[in-house]
């Protein structure tokens, strides 16, 4: 299984190979279009508030691992959120809590998307970490009880 660091590096490399903003834009759009999302993800509890456009993230913890589903009316936002899913989905809770996520700053993505979208992406990261932390604490407590 490849590490979070490797997955981030792959994204950074992909963006480096895409020559200009339009290729990067197209890549994010195609990424968004390639993933069908259940309508159930679009509920109020999953809303990412700081995002300029409507965006949702469904975060679940199963067997000590994180499972993510995302959606947005904006293909650009959905594409960026899917990069996050690619990196974190299926990872152990402890890894999610401690992972250094620097793909936003190290890709050209950072220069090529409006700041409000970056804020939304960061807000999604902290939402995931918050859920993972709570689930990890709960898991540890349950472990101690047993």
């Amino acid at each position: 299984m490849i590490s979070i660091e490797q997955k981030q590096n792959e994204i950074v490399e992909t963006f480096r190979l895409l020559e200009d903003w339009m290729d990067q834009y197209t890549y994010l759009v195609e990424t968004a279009q390639s993933v069908a999302v259940s309508e159930a993800v679009r509920c109020d509890a999953n809303r990412i508030r700081e995002c300029q456009s409507e965006a949702w993230i469904d975060i679940r913890c199963n067997d000590g691992k994180i499972n993510l589903a995302v959606d947005s009316d904006s293909l650009l936002v959905k594409g960026m959120l899917l990069l996050l899913v690619r990196i974190l989905d299926g990872e152990p809770l402890a890894t999610v809590c401690s992972a250094e996520l620097d793909f936003i700053e190290t890709t050209e993505l950072y220069q090529n998307v409006p700041p409000a979208r970056i804020t939304g992406l960061r807000s999604a990261v902290s939402k995931i970490r918050g859920v993972a932390r709570q689930a990890a604490v709960k898991k540890n407590r349950n472990g101690l009880k047993k």
Binding site: S53, D73, L76, V77
Partner: peptide, 11 residues
């Protein structure tokens, strides 16, 4: 989406 269009036009 209008934001995607606005961003595309901006770039």
């Amino acid at each position: 989406h209008f934001y995607d269009a606005g961003f595309f036009l901006a770039r």
